[in-house]
């Protein structure tokens, strides 16, 4: 579905269904350099379970036009603007990595619009190494390589995809390669500069869940302690064997976990 948001064309995957205002809505928000396709399995699942699903392409990503937004706060405002455009009063937000920070910011700053959040592969703060930032700023392929390899647990460096026939490393790398020049840098810088996450987390009033990869090397479990302490009564699910790319590495366990808050 394509709609106008802030003067640009925004794309969101809805499982080819119209939005029905009497149904609950689940919004899926992808991570840096990605697009809505990382949420295809989960989107299809929650659509069949009676939800409107809105899996977004952030501005400048995938099929959405416009420039990538500079800050997590701007991205959160954009998500709320998208809900407005779709006439959705409130939604559960599921975000991965950068998307998890957007979901967190939405829940803190727009609490009347958010009924639950699930933060997948998250941490706050979410510092990004200079090596990745420098490579991303230079549109150097090395940034894609670093994020792809470090995004998977050590055991998944050789694949082992339960989703038949897909080379998980190759598919993730290709998504990065498809992003427009500069997009990844904007996203990574936004992650790096979003330092108010734990303060914002304290404001969260809705049910909140953290889904973490036990072998995550980009946002390790130990880096989530501050967030776990800041969010009031979070549900924390640590998935064994998974790294940062949880939707690919542990798709079924993630779905089961999501049902605890959605």
């Amino acid at each position: 579905m394509r709609i106008a948001v802030n003067g640009e064309t925004a794309y969101c995957y809805t499982n080819s269904r119209d939005i029905e205002t009497d149904k609950p809505t689940v919004v899926f928000i992808h991570g840096s350099g990605m697009d809505h396709t990382v949420w295809t399995l989960a989107s299809r699942h929650f659509a069949r379970h009676g939800n409107n699903v809105v899996s977004v392409d952030l501005p400048g990503h995938g099929r959405s036009t416009g420039s990538p937004l500079a800050t997590v706060e701007e991205m959160a405002s954009w998500v709320i603007a998208m809900l407005d455009a779709l006439a959705i009063t409130d939604a559960a937000l599921v975000g991965h990595s950068l998307g998890s920070l957007i979901a967190l910011e939405c829940a803190a700053s727009h609490s009347d619009r958010v009924r639950a959040i699930a933060l997948v592969g998250t941490s706050s703060p979410m510092p990004v190494s200079d090596a990745i930032l420098d490579a991303a700023e230079a549109d150097d392929h090395a940034a894609f390589d670093m994020l792809t390899q470090w995004g998977f647990s050590k055991r998944h460096q050789f694949g082992g995809n339960r989703n038949s026939g897909i080379w998980m490393i190759g598919n993730t790398l290709r998504l990065y390669e498809r992003s427009a020049p500069g997009v990844l840098f904007h996203d990574m810088r936004a992650c790096n500069e979003y330092t108010s996450g734990t303060d914002q987390a304290a404001k969260i009033a809705c049910p909140a869940m953290l889904i973490l990869g036990a072998e995550d090397r980009l946002t390790p479990v130990r880096s989530t302690r501050a967030l776990q302490e800041a969010i009031p009564s979070p549900v924390v699910e640590i998935l064994p064997g998974a790294g940062h790319t949880i939707m690919v590495e542990a798709p079924n366990a993630m779905l089961d976990a999501l049902h605890k808050v959605l």
Partner: peptide
Amino acid sequence: EERIAALEGGVGA
């Protein structure tokens, strides 16, 4: 399938 996709540098097989 995943092995040949990896060896060829593809996305799937």
